[in-house]
Design a protein around this nucleic acid. Structure first.
Lengths: 299, 299
DNA sequence: GTGAAAGCGCTAACAC
DNA sequence: GTGTTAGCGCTTTCAC
């Protein structure tokens, strides 16, 4: 392997010239350039990228903070970021946090340590103040509405999407409506809650806390929701579900338990992942992959 | 921020001592250690990790080569790797390749450049020889059977799993059996094909190339399969499907088109992802997350 | 226990 | 166009 100095010696030039060749600097005499490439071939040389990073003070790596790689919502965003990053010569360092605040901070530390040039936060537990504190070390982009905070973000208008969903159900004649989300905290969830309340207010219904289900992420969570519903004396006639996966679970387990869908329970969900198509779930599409793309470009 | 020298000056010690404190080297006098930590706090200092990487000659990052982040099969493996990596103080650099051989080689180059300490290849297009050539630069682990090659690997016995599936269907009385896989090439697929042929041989049936569907990755591919089936004069009575997603698609689109399942077409699939539970698909579980974990430890 | 100093391998300002 | 050289910020002998 060797280093740049050996290449220089073998090619009969200076290390600076080797560096120039390596970085496609235009003004190098053709014969020297050739000599350098030959030496590189001969010694099977490759730059030590850590030295490059140190010297340049940047890495062309961006970090991505994500709670679960394995959930379609997040893997779709990741997909978008990954594709775009690669097209632009960037690499992706993956921080899977499980919403563990310590892991989130670890990731943020990587920005300070210059391990990454920037960070995209797909979803988080850590508070905004903390993030703002880290943004002095490099660009940070959130995938949520930051409400005029001094932070970059790209976001889907979950308030609007949820309101749309509510209105759709209301127009279908529903008045007793509940919903399912991943976490009760989180900006996106608060937007959804606000939309829920707003829509109910307009039809003079009061929100029903017992019809709000959180921790709904995967298909299996649908089972829990169905079980809860069956135990209630008064049930919602419709459910707005923030993930296709969960909707699929509710529909399937519901049917198993004798719930007629949509007669007993209408289900409207989000994301438009393939699973909804398979199950003929009515769903509202969210442009997640595009969001990932945009997030990358903001950085 | 500053650097180690400033810390040394402020704490009244040498840079070596600062380094010792930073690396939790035991033999440093308590008072100096304290002075160093105070200086660190005061200057809000963090190590420049690139300098550490360069100096140490390693990065504690491992690369993961994966065709699509967004497919459950791969995101489950990634999940396993990510969880285990984090627990061991490693980070993950994600290379999403779309099976583009150039991107795979780029990723392998990162090993040579010392960007990563090792690489896990979840699925690949590039040939074994190439990979062997790169393994001089660091550990590489494949997630497939490497057939006695001089390469590390952790793999699921897809031959066995497929054979099990075939026998299950045969026991149910099926003789006209087809299958669906992601790619026709690839070691895992070849193992499946071998199992398919073997099982048919035992019941004196010949393989039917027209009943083999490749490029089956997502739910929507199920639609294509169903369409093909409907065009055939002679159809299989059962299908072994290498992904729950695709099975879900086949079942749903099949039902839409009036196919009775399982009466007209039995479907058996793999992976045991939640979607199969939702759709009551019979499925054979594959320990993907565990495989990811093991892959990490081999490195 | 601690410090001086020699790297790690590259980039880039500067001089020619 | 090209070479010299001073960093980049840290780790790690080696000597005391």
């Amino acid at each position: 392997m060797g280093n740049i100095r050996e290449i220089a010696k073998l090619a009969g030039v200076s290390v600076a010239t080797v560096s120039r060749v390596l970085n496609h600097y235009p003004y190098v005499k053709e014969e020297k350039r050739k000599a350098v490439w030959e030496a590189i071939e001969k010694l099977n040389y490759t730059r030590n990228i850590n030295a490059v990073h140190l010297s340049r003070g940047k890495t062309s790596i961006i970090g991505i903070i994500i709670p679960y790689v394995n959930h379609p919502y997040f893997s779709t965003i990741t997909e978008g970021i990954a594709a775009e990053a690669l097209r632009n010569g960037y690499h992706l360092l993956l921080f899977q946090t499980n919403y563990d605040i310590k892991k989130e901070i670890d990731a943020l530390e990587m920005l300070k340590m210059k391990q990454v040039d920037g960070i995209i936060i797909c979803s988080r537990t850590v508070d905004w103040e903390r993030i703002e504190a880290y943004s002095q070390y490099g660009p940070i982009v959130l995938c949520e509405d930051v409400k005029g905070r001094n932070l970059s973000s790209v976001s889907i208008d979950h308030y609007y999407a949820f309101l749309m969903g509510m209105n759709y159900l209301i127009k279908k004649g529903h008045r007793k409506i509940g919903y399912c989300i991943g976490r009760i905290t989180g900006t996106n969830s608060k937007a959804r809650q606000a939309a829920y309340q707003e829509a109910l207010k307009q039809i003079n219904e009061r929100p029903r806390p017992e019809w709000i289900f959180d921790q709904c992420l995967y298909i299996e969570d649908g089972e829990r929701v169905v079980a809860s519903l069956l135990r209630m004396k008064e049930r919602p006639t419709a459910l707005l579900v923030s993930s296709d996966q969960v909707a699929a679970g509710i529909i399937t387990f519901g049917k198993n338990k004798g719930l007629k869908i949509p007669e007993n329970l209408a289900v409207l969900s989000f994301d438009n992942h393939p699973i909804s198509e398979a199950l003929n779930i009515t769903t509202i599409e969210l442009p997640l992959s595009v969001m990932g793309k945009k997030a990358f470009h903001m950085i």
